[in-house]
């Protein structure tokens, strides 16, 4: 700013108001250029999702065309979109709730209580946060392979529970009637424990926990401790202190944590690919199945991509502030 000012002072003597405005214009031009670079690819995706395959395959980019909802229609009517949407939602929401519930408690203990191993706990949390998901693939195959094998052979104590659960859920009124909606919902349950969703919930929670614990520790430390101390003097148990005093004050912290947990569970691909099956694929996995031997179904892929983008986009528009808070918490706070 200063160097700009001194330069133009020597070359041309313009009133200072003009210089400031000129700088502003440059500022906006830069911002708009960056925004266009960011939005361009996303816009292209949404645009392409309304094109027919013929238009998509043309060598020149087509900006004006007769839009069609054929791609969306195909996905929803013939590709069991609803089933996979429910799968994604079930995994995403369950792991989010589980993670928040568990990490709130852990963060409270680490931030407010003194106990042996507290420092170690905090450090371990930070280090396991960095475990690459790819590392989990082999153990998952080992673990889940053994699990499914034992279920199939009936050698595990769990197989009895699982079979009973599956036959019970299948016999309920919910799943014996035959509307499309119910057909989509029932596979969510009827495959029981073996269709990978429970595994996904476990691994997403484990991958997200270190971050949410860390985040919530930061939030708890900003709350003055006096209130809690007063409550303890009045004879409140630690559980009452957490539920009645901290929990209400931590709402914004939970909001930030929820956004990040849900985002990862909703977008994740690798573990979902390994763990889920034909009936339980989450949306990102389902999308990649349109890359076929016979060719890439770009129209369907872009329609899926657009639909997958909707929840993160809504989150961005309605809670940009919380997202930034969460992102900077990792680096700035500590």
């Amino acid at each position: 700013m200063q160097s700009f000012a001194s330069k133009s002072n020597t070359i041309e003597k313009k009133p200072s108001k003009f210089r400031i405005k000129w700088f502003r214009v440059l500022h906006y031009i830069m911002l708009i250029t960056l925004a266009l670079i960011i939005l361009g690819p996303l816009y292209l995706m949404v645009l392409t999702s309304f094109k027919q395959q013929v238009v998509i395959m043309s060598r020149e980019p087509v900006w004006f065309f007769v839009p069609t909802v054929h791609n969306y229609q195909h996905i929803i009517e013939e590709e069991h979109f609803l089933r996979h949407l429910l799968s994604s939602l079930a995994v995403g929401l369950t792991s989010t709730v589980l993670t928040l519930f568990v990490s709130g408690w852990a963060a409270y203990a680490i931030a407010r209580m003194k106990f042996p191993g507290r420092g170690l706990m905090a450090n371990t949390t930070l280090v396991v946060r960095m475990v690459p998901p790819a590392v989990l693939t082999v153990p998952i195959v080992a673990l889940w392979g053994a699990w499914e094998l034992s279920l199939a052979n009936g050698t595990s104590i769990f197989s009895g529970i699982n079979n009973a659960y599956v036959s019970w859920i299948n016999s309920t009124v919910l799943c014996t009637s035959s509307s499309y909606w119910l057909e989509a919902v029932c596979p969510l349950f009827s495959d029981g424990l073996t269709d990978g969703r429970l595994g996904l919930i476990l691994f997403y929670s484990a991958l997200n926990l270190p971050f949410t614990v860390w985040l919530l520790i930061g939030f708890i430390r900003q709350i003055p401790v006096d209130l809690e101390e007063a409550a303890i003097v009045d004879g409140a148990t630690p559980f009452q202190v957490f539920n009645k005093i901290l929990f209400p004050l931590l709402k914004s912290g939970y909001a930030v944590a929820a956004i990040f947990t849900f985002r990862i569970a909703w977008n994740e691909f690798l573990l979902a690919l390994i763990l889920t099956g034909r009936n339980s694929y989450t949306l990102p996995v389902k999308t990649t199945l349109f890359i076929r031997e016979s060719g890439v179904q770009w129209g369907l892929i872009m329609a899926m991509g657009t639909l997958i983008l909707i929840p993160p986009m809504l989150l961005t528009f309605f809670s940009a502030r919380q997202i930034i808070q969460g992102m900077t918490a990792g680096a700035v706070k500590g």
Partner: peptide, 10 residues
């Protein structure tokens, strides 16, 4: 923020 929220697959 938008690109950070988009699924890597997408």
């Amino acid at each position: 923020i938008l690109p950070l929220m988009v699924s890597p697959v997408v």
